[in-house]
């Protein structure tokens, strides 16, 4: 029989200001898999340290080390942890159509929602931009309209129970909410944000999102 103490918890290279990094950790929290956290401070450019480049030459966060198996891309990490460590398939359903929907939403978050938020915030954080242009604002609101549509059709982002699509999407969205984004015209998103805040790990996520929001607000005019 294996001794639980002998099993090393997967290590997550993490920085709580980063939305994707919080997304992977939030997924781990709802799945209930213990992870050992090693902080890589992006503000101090620690991702470019020789030791981290050896682990992930693409030097992005989060990165997971599960007993020597290295993987990055937050949503791929969430899928991996859910499949490997989930007590059941609640957070990443095995049913063909349900999983297809979760996957679609994960790709929506990674290729659209998160990308629009990144397009607004990165130039403010790193390139001296001091305001949010109207086209970028409109672009994100259009995407939030899609999320609103998903959430008017179902209780959660990909169906009637929470999945890793929710933790991933919430990690992205909470970053821009912490900047003070107005979501008063999206009632279903508001409802869902409240639901998410009751999931395990949400408060921890919000703490990082607040740090992100403060950094952005600090650089805005």
């Amino acid at each position: 029989m294996s001794n639980l103490k002998d099993i090393q918890a997967p290590k997550l290279y993490h920085f709580n200001v980063s939305g994707p990094s919080r997304g992977a950790l939030f997924a781990a929290r709802v799945i209930g898999v213990p992870v050992e956290i090693e902080v890589i401070n992006l503000f101090k450019k620690e991702q470019l340290n020789e030791s981290f480049l050896k682990i992930n030459p693409q030097h992005c966060l989060p990165t997971l080390d599960d007993d020597g198996f290295i993987i990055w891309e937050s949503r791929a990490i969430a899928c991996y942890l859910a499949d490997k460590y989930g007590k059941d398939d609640q957070f990443y359903p095995k049913d063909l159509k349900k999983r297809a929907l979760v996957n679609q939403r994960l790709f929506f978050d990674s290729s659209s929602l998160y990308v629009k938020i990144r397009a607004i915030c990165l130039p403010i954080l790193y390139f001296g931009v001091k305001e949010i242009s109207q086209p970028l604002r409109d672009d994100l609101n259009t995407t939030l309209g899609f999320l609103e549509t998903f959430l008017s059709d179902s209780e959660w982002v990909a169906g009637d129970s929470p999945t890793i699509a929710d933790t991933s999407t919430y990690a992205s969205l909470s970053s821009i909410l912490a900047v003070g984004w107005d979501i008063s015209s999206f009632p279903n998103i508001q409802r869902w944000v409240k639901q998410c805040s009751e999931l395990p790990g949400a408060a921890e996520n919000d703490e990082g999102a607040k740090a992100f929001g403060d950094a952005i607000k600090n650089n805005l005019k």
Binding site: F69, I71, W72, E73, S74, R75, A76, I77, C79, Y80, D83, K84, L106, F107, S110, S111, Y114, V115
Partner: peptide, 21 residues
């Protein structure tokens, strides 16, 4: 296989969020 699947997913998400963008 969990490791291989994770490696494939990693690239699919890289394509979606970085490369294709």
């Amino acid at each position: 296989d969990p490791h291989m699947r994770a490696a494939v997913n990693q690239i699919l998400f890289f394509d979606a969020s970085v490369y294709f963008i």
